[in-house]
Design a protein around this nucleic acid. Structure first.
Lengths: 100, 100
DNA sequence: TTAATATATTCCAATTATGGCATATGTGAA
DNA sequence: TTCACATATGCCATAATTGGAATATATTAA
């Protein structure tokens, strides 16, 4: 059933529809980071970051790995770059007829 | 300011984070359609469709054109295909380590 | 065991999204 | 003008999301 696919896709987009979570994804673009590094660099409350990471993980966008006290997160998909390049085209060319 | 970009990107993802709106986008992939065609084919209430179209339009994802009584909508971006190809990879390979 | 540190979870109030129904607006024909 | 049709908007109750504060859990060291 196709409706089911739309539901799942919507879930993924929902995970991406928050500025803090997008900032986290951007930060992870350079490679694996532990939660403490994310908290330090992005300047949000640690529980806020942890909850954001959970949502991204549930959507299948990131993965985690524990090493001692630390939990390291990294991007699970690489095509996100294309996503965002396209997005930026949209944002840049707001008046154009058709972009990308 | 970069935070602003995350806000705008999040807005676009929010517009995409609903199954009905995704179904509409899919339907528009074949080309321009009037509201009545969308209502007939997708089987949702007309006000529901109209409101969904408004959200997509506000996000800059579709555009509209009136011709007499009808209003025709069409996709404003073409890279959405790549978006969804990537998405499908994510959905298909839920257990894989890294996709796309 | 206890303590210290890193991370996750729970609870909550405020905000925002959802979709149904009624109604308003816009356009063309008579 | 009035009517019929296509589309848009407003109102509303319900549901989901948000982020803060407190607390819980997990891991390691001592």
């Amino acid at each position: 059933m196709k409706k089911n696919i739309y539901e799942k896709e919507a879930q993924i987009f929902k995970a991406l529809s928050n500025p803090v979570r997008l900032e986290i994804i951007d930060f992870l673009a350079d490679g694996e980071r532990c939660v403490c590094e994310i908290v330090e660099n992005l300047n949000y409350e640690q529980p806020h970051i942890s909850k954001s990471l959970l949502k991204l993980k549930e959507a299948g966008l990131i993965k985690d790995r524990r090493d001692g006290l630390n939990v390291y997160y990294s991007l699970k998909i690489s095509c996100l770059r294309e996503f965002f390049n396209c997005l930026n085209n949209i944002l840049d060319a707001d008046n154009s007829d058709k972009y990308c």
